[in-house]
C-alpha cells in the first residue's frame, strides 16, 4: 500500500491534441516524496491536462512521468489503471459523487472493485476520514449534502485508499470562503501527517500560498517555477 509519498520526476513531457497540436509541454519538473506542488495559470492553459497526465489518464502523451520507479508513459492502460488504484487519489472540481449512495459508500467506493482483503481497510479509513472532516457517514444521500460536505466526501474518497499521491483539481473552487478554508486545513493536515505527495491545480491564492512549490502554466508552457 501507499502511505509514504512518491517522488515525481517529469522529463520532456508533451501532450498533443487529436490534430497534433501541442497542448502541454513540460521539459522538466521534479517534486520530492511528500512534497506539495501548486499549479496555477489562466483557464484553458493546460493545468487540468497536466493533472490528468500525472494520473496517467492522458492519451497522446510523450516523454516521461516517473512516480518513484514507475514511468507512467511506459505503461499500457491496464497497469496504469492498477497503478492509479494503488497509489493515486483524485479530487475533482465538481465533486463527481454518486448521488444515490450515502457519504460512506461514496467515500469507500474503491471497496467495490479492490480485492476483498483490502475492503475493510478502505471502509475503515473512509469512516475515520468522514468523522474527522465532520460529515455524517450515513443516513443521507448526496443531494441533501451542502457543497462543502460534498467536497469533503470527495476528499475522503481520494484518501480512503491510503494513496501515496493526491491530485486535486480546483478543490476549493466551488466552496465559500470559510468552507474552502476548513477543507484546505483538513486536507493539508492529513497530507502532512501521512507524507502524501500533493499536486493541486488552483486559482485560490490561500491554497497556493501553502504549497511547498508553485508552477504557472500559460498556453501549455510552464512559465515559472519557484520554490
Amino acid at each position: 500500500m501507499g502511505g509514504e509519498g512518491l517522488p515525481l520526476a517529469i522529463e520532456d513531457l508533451e501532450v498533443r491534441s487529436t490534430d497534433g497540436r501541442v497542448l502541454l509541454s513540460v521539459p522538466r519538473l521534479e517534486l520530492p516524496a511528500g512534497g506539495t506542488l501548486g499549479i496555477r495559470g489562466p483557464s484553458g492553459a493546460g493545468k487540468s491536462t497536466l493533472l490528468f497526465a500525472l494520473a496517467g489518464l492522458q492519451d497522446r502523451m510523450t516523454g516521461r512521468i516517473r512516480w518513484g520507479d514507475t514511468d507512467l508513459g511506459a505503461l499500457r492502460s491496464g497497469p496504469r489503471t492498477a497503478f492509479r488504484a494503488l497509489h493515486v487519489g483524485i479530487v475533482f472540481q465538481d465533486f463527481l459523487l454518486f448521488e444515490e449512495l450515502g457519504p460512506l459508500a461514496n467515500a469507500s467506493l474503491a471497496a467495490m472493485y479492490r480485492p476483498r482483503a483490502e475492503r475493510p481497510g478502505i471502509r475503515d479509513r473512509a469512516r475515520r476520514l468522514l468523522r474527522r472532516f465532520g460529515v455524517d457517514e450515513d443516513g443521507r444521500t448526496v443531494p441533501t449534502l451542502s457543497g462543502g460536505e460534498r467536497q469533503r466526501v470527495a476528499v475522503a474518497r481520494a484518501m480512503s485508499g491510503d494513496a501515496a499521491i493526491l491530485l486535486a483539481d480546483e478543490p476549493t473552487a466551488n466552496l465559500d470562503r470559510d468552507t474552502g478554508e476548513r477543507l484546505l486545513a483538513d486536507l493539508l493536515a492529513r497530507v502532512r501527517e501521512n507524507g502524501t505527495t500533493l499536486v493541486a491545480v488552483s486559482h485560490d491564492d490561500r491554497l497556493l500560498a501553502r504549497m511547498d512549490r508553485v508552477v504557472k502554466i500559460v498556453d501549455g508552457q510552464m512559465v515559472s517555477a519557484h520554490a
Binding site: A55, L57, S77, G78, T81, A82, F83, R84, A85, L86, V88, I90, F92, L96, F98, L109, A110, M112, Y113, R157, G161
Partner: peptide, 16 residues
C-alpha cells in the same frame, strides 16, 4: 458516462 469515467479515473479496472 461521467460517473463511469470517474470510476476509471479512480482506478477501477475496465472490467469493473
Amino acid at each position: 458516462r461521467r460517473q463511469l469515467a470517474l470510476l476509471r479515473a479512480l482506478g477501477a479496472p475496465a472490467r469493473f
